[in-house]
Simulated scan of single mutants.
Amino acid sequence: MPGHTGRLLGNLSDLGEALGRVFKLVTEELPTSAFQEYLDATHDLPASTEAEQMAIARTAQGIFRRHLDVYWNRACAITGVRDRELLRASHIKPWAVSSDYERVDVHNGLLLSALWDAAFDQGLVSFSDEGRLFVNPKLSERAIAVLTEGRPITVSVSAGHAPYLKEHRVRHGFTPLSC
């Protein structure tokens, strides 16, 4: 059909070969998901004491950061700054109210420079499902000028970010009229 790619399999042998290639791709060549990495890293760890729970949290945060680094090409999603010391792995939906899956889901995160992270974390800025910047009226004109440098700001987000961004906008009072 027009617009579709694929291959017509003529017999069961071709189907077996194709399934073998798919299995190899999925099990050997695709990178491990952040959640699977979290499960693998924590499945044997006890979680009965506060110290053990903190060890699990640190493990999850390290996994989240590594996957965000890869997803955002080790650069701030807004400014492109690459200085690791200035970058924060920012959860869109806060850690405290996230499920284990959401805590390591790369779509629940933005890699942001420290100033953008602070503005986002405090709800002074947010983003549309398409990545367009929304500014809270509490943010001063000077802060807006410093953050945006007078240019339009858009973040390259995917559909996977949309539910988290919506939750962020609602939590911080970005109404449809203010967006």
Rank of each mutant, 00 (worst) to 15 (best):
I153G: 00
D105K: 08
A34Q: 05
G109E: 09
G3E: 11
W95Y: 10
A57H: 04
A96E: 10
E141Q: 15
Y101L: 14
G62H: 04
S13T: 14
S98A: 11
V22P: 02
A96W: 11
S48K: 09
D129K: 15
H172S: 07
V157Q: 05
D69C: 06
V106D: 00
V155W: 04
A60G: 01
N11W: 04
L165N: 10
P163Y: 08
L139A: 10
K138A: 03
L86S: 07
T59M: 10
S113L: 14
L87R: 09
R21E: 05
R65L: 06
T59C: 12
D117Q: 04
L30S: 04
D69T: 00
E37K: 09
T42S: 11
C76T: 00
E17N: 12
D44Y: 05
R103S: 05
T42V: 11
M54K: 14
T32K: 10
T175P: 04
T5C: 02
A114E: 08
R169N: 04
H4N: 02
H107P: 09
S178K: 01
L45G: 02
K24G: 00
H107N: 15
G16P: 13
A89L: 12
R58V: 10
W95P: 03
D100V: 13
D69V: 02
I56F: 04
T5K: 07
L30F: 09
V97N: 04
R7Q: 04
T154A: 11
G10P: 07
A162V: 15
L133N: 05
C179A: 11
S126K: 01
S99P: 12
S90P: 03
E17Y: 12
G62C: 13
V81I: 14
L86T: 15
F120R: 14
G6D: 07
V157G: 00
A145F: 13
C179N: 12
Q122C: 09
A77N: 12
E102W: 13
R171N: 12
R82W: 13
Q122H: 06
G80N: 02
K93W: 12
V146H: 05
R65G: 01
D117I: 11
S156Y: 11
W116K: 13
G10Q: 14
D129S: 06
L115K: 14
R82S: 00
E102L: 03
M54P: 01
H107F: 01
Y71M: 03
S178W: 10
V97M: 06
L30Y: 00
E28G: 08
S158L: 07
D14V: 09
E102Q: 13
A118M: 15
D100Y: 06
G10W: 09
V125L: 04
T148I: 02
R84L: 15
H67C: 00
L68T: 08
T32Q: 12
A75Y: 10
P46M: 11
